[in-house]
Structure formats: structure tokens, C-alpha cells
Amino acid sequence: MAATVIGAGITIEGEVSSDDEVIIGGTLRGKLDAGGAVTVESDAVVEADIDAQSVAIGGTVTGNVSAAERVDLLSGGKLIGDVKAARLTIADGAVFKGNVDMEV
């Protein structure tokens, strides 16, 4: 199983659920559920709750993020929503507004 790549020109309004990795470069409105790693690229806009193994945010995410493993908020990333993960990193330059729950 390969990674699902949602490129820059793609807009998805609905639910996305994957067994494996998901790389989002476009726009997603709805819900995202992945069994692997989720990478939100720098131009991506995600207005959805994300539930994955691990989440790396380089774009704009509006919604709650829940990861089994870790959440990385990268330098150009913006997260407005709650985070629930065992590990969390917020890079310098990232924007974050929400609650954090690290008790798993």
C-alpha cells in the first residue's frame, strides 16, 4: 500500500479514511482518519479533525488533531484546535491555538 497523495490542486469535501500514509497538499474539509502518518504540506488547508498514527503539520489545520504517536508542528505550520498525542513538538515560527493533552 502506497501513500495517498492529495496534490495542490485537489479539494476534497468529505471524509477521508486511509490504512496508510496520507500527504495533503491541497484542501480538505471534513474528516481525516489515517492508519499511518499524516503530513500536511505548506500550502495545504485542512479544516477537519485528524486522527492518525503521527501528524506533521506544515500548513494550516483548523480542527482537533489526535495522534497515537506524535504530533509535529513545523515552522510554517498553523494549528487551531486541540492536540491529543503522546509526544508533541512545536517549531519556532509555528502558530498554535488550542489545548494539549499528552496523557495517553
Binding site: A2, T4, I6, I10, E15, V16, S18, G35
Partner: peptide, 29 residues
Amino acid sequence: MAQHSSSIIAAGTVIRGRITATGDLEIHG
């Protein structure tokens, strides 16, 4: 100039909703 990016929906992925694309799209899920 719209960037024609190719997207892949891999085999284990389920998408319920509307997909609008400016570029190419491969659906295996």
C-alpha cells in the same frame, strides 16, 4: 497558470465526499 499536480488515492483509502481537482488524479481506492 494552474499547477498541474498529480494526486494518488492509494489502495487502502476510502473517500466519501466531493473531489474537485485541477490536475491529474489516480484512484486506486
